[in-house]
Protein backbone atom coordinates (compact mmCIF):
# COMPACT_ATOMS: atom_id res chain seq x y z
CA UNK A 1 0.00 0.00 0.00
CA UNK A 2 1.33 3.38 -1.03
CA UNK A 3 0.24 6.20 1.24
CA UNK A 4 0.26 9.74 -0.10
CA UNK A 5 -0.39 12.64 2.21
CA UNK A 6 -2.51 15.44 0.90
CA UNK A 7 -4.45 18.31 2.37
CA UNK A 8 -8.04 19.45 2.09
CA UNK A 9 -7.04 22.34 -0.15
CA UNK A 10 -4.93 20.31 -2.55
CA UNK A 11 -6.97 17.11 -2.46
CA UNK A 12 -9.01 17.73 -5.58
CA UNK A 13 -6.01 18.76 -7.64
CA UNK A 14 -4.03 15.75 -6.45
CA UNK A 15 -6.82 13.33 -7.25
CA UNK A 16 -7.61 14.92 -10.62
CA UNK A 17 -4.00 14.57 -11.69
CA UNK A 18 -3.77 11.03 -10.31
CA UNK A 19 -7.06 9.43 -11.23
CA UNK A 20 -7.50 7.95 -14.67
CA UNK A 21 -10.65 5.79 -15.05
CA UNK A 22 -8.94 3.45 -17.48
CA UNK A 23 -6.08 2.69 -15.11
CA UNK A 24 -7.33 3.18 -11.61
CA UNK A 25 -10.20 1.86 -9.71
CA UNK A 26 -11.73 3.84 -6.88
CA UNK A 27 -12.48 1.51 -4.02
CA UNK A 28 -13.72 3.21 -0.92
CA UNK A 29 -13.29 6.02 1.54
CA UNK A 30 -12.43 5.42 5.14
CA UNK A 31 -11.89 7.42 8.27
CA UNK A 32 -9.84 6.55 11.33
CA UNK A 33 -9.99 8.39 14.61
CA UNK A 34 -6.64 9.72 15.71
CA UNK A 35 -7.39 11.14 19.10
CA UNK A 36 -8.98 14.53 18.57
CA UNK A 37 -8.28 14.54 14.85
CA UNK A 38 -9.49 12.22 12.16
CA UNK A 39 -7.67 10.67 9.26
CA UNK A 40 -9.73 10.53 6.07
CA UNK A 41 -8.53 8.11 3.43
CA UNK A 42 -9.33 7.57 -0.24
CA UNK A 43 -8.38 4.14 -1.59
CA UNK A 44 -7.53 3.46 -5.21
CA UNK A 45 -6.05 0.47 -6.93
CA UNK A 46 -4.81 -0.38 -10.42
CA UNK A 47 -6.33 -2.65 -12.99
CA UNK A 48 -2.84 -3.79 -13.84
CA UNK A 49 -0.99 -6.84 -12.67
CA UNK A 50 0.73 -6.66 -10.25
CA UNK A 51 -1.70 -4.30 -8.66
CA UNK A 52 -0.83 -1.49 -6.32
CA UNK A 53 -3.14 0.00 -3.74
CA UNK A 54 -2.82 3.75 -3.35
CA UNK A 55 -4.18 5.60 -0.38
CA UNK A 56 -4.57 9.36 -0.22
CA UNK A 57 -4.98 10.59 3.31
CA UNK A 58 -5.30 13.77 5.23
CA UNK A 59 -5.85 14.73 8.84
CA UNK A 60 -8.87 16.85 9.60
CA UNK A 61 -10.38 18.45 12.66
CA UNK A 62 -13.75 17.12 13.77
CA UNK A 63 -16.59 18.83 11.93
CA UNK A 64 -14.33 20.26 9.26
CA UNK A 65 -15.81 20.12 5.75
CA UNK A 66 -14.22 17.64 3.35
CA UNK A 67 -14.46 18.49 -0.35
CA UNK A 68 -16.49 16.08 -2.46
CA UNK A 69 -14.76 14.21 -5.29
CA UNK A 70 -17.97 13.34 -7.11
CA UNK A 71 -16.96 15.39 -10.17
CA UNK A 72 -13.69 13.47 -10.45
CA UNK A 73 -14.90 9.97 -9.57
CA UNK A 74 -18.48 9.33 -10.65
CA UNK A 75 -19.26 6.59 -8.20
CA UNK A 76 -17.82 8.30 -5.12
CA UNK A 77 -21.22 9.42 -3.85
CA UNK A 78 -21.90 6.05 -2.24
CA UNK A 79 -18.69 6.09 -0.22
CA UNK A 80 -19.17 9.74 0.74
CA UNK A 81 -22.74 9.15 1.88
CA UNK A 82 -21.54 6.25 3.97
CA UNK A 83 -18.87 8.30 5.73
CA UNK A 84 -21.32 11.11 6.41
CA UNK A 85 -23.68 8.78 8.22
CA UNK A 86 -21.40 6.28 9.88
CA UNK A 87 -18.46 8.46 10.90
CA UNK A 88 -20.26 11.79 11.21
CA UNK A 89 -17.94 13.56 8.76
CA UNK A 90 -19.09 16.68 7.02
CA UNK A 91 -18.73 16.15 3.26
CA UNK A 92 -19.51 18.91 0.81
CA UNK A 93 -22.89 18.55 -0.95
CA UNK A 94 -23.79 15.32 0.77
CA UNK A 95 -26.90 15.03 2.87
CA UNK A 96 -27.33 12.69 5.80
CA UNK A 97 -29.70 9.78 5.64
CA UNK A 98 -28.56 7.46 2.87
CA UNK A 99 -26.99 4.77 4.99
CA UNK A 100 -29.04 5.24 8.13
CA UNK A 101 -32.40 6.81 8.77
CA UNK A 102 -32.14 10.62 8.71
CA UNK A 103 -33.20 10.83 12.35
CA UNK A 104 -30.72 8.23 13.51
CA UNK A 105 -28.01 9.24 15.92
CA UNK A 106 -25.11 9.85 13.57
CA UNK A 107 -21.66 8.38 13.83
CA UNK A 108 -22.39 4.88 15.19
CA UNK A 109 -18.87 3.77 14.30
CA UNK A 110 -17.17 6.43 16.36
CA UNK A 111 -15.45 5.26 19.53
CA UNK A 112 -17.63 5.71 22.55
CA UNK A 113 -16.23 8.17 25.02
Amino acid sequence: MKKIETSLATLKNDLASFYNPAEHHFMVMNAVEMGEKMEVQWFFCDYAHPCETTCFFTLIERGEEVPSIKDIVDSAWVAEAELVDLMNINVENTAKGFVLEPDFESGPLLKKK
Partner: peptide
Protein backbone atom coordinates in the same frame (compact mmCIF):
# COMPACT_ATOMS: atom_id res chain seq x y z
CA UNK B 1 -8.21 -3.65 16.75
CA UNK B 2 -8.21 0.12 16.39
CA UNK B 3 -10.23 0.19 13.17
CA UNK B 4 -11.56 -2.37 10.71
CA UNK B 5 -13.10 -1.29 7.43
CA UNK B 6 -14.97 -3.72 5.21
CA UNK B 7 -15.81 -2.84 1.64
CA UNK B 8 -18.13 -5.42 0.11
CA UNK B 9 -18.35 -5.96 -3.67
CA UNK B 10 -21.94 -4.78 -3.87
CA UNK B 11 -20.89 -1.47 -2.33
CA UNK B 12 -18.82 -0.72 -5.43
CA UNK B 13 -21.64 -1.82 -7.69
CA UNK B 14 -24.35 0.42 -6.24
CA UNK B 15 -23.63 3.28 -8.65
CA UNK B 16 -23.53 0.93 -11.63
Amino acid sequence: LERLKIKAPTFSNVAG
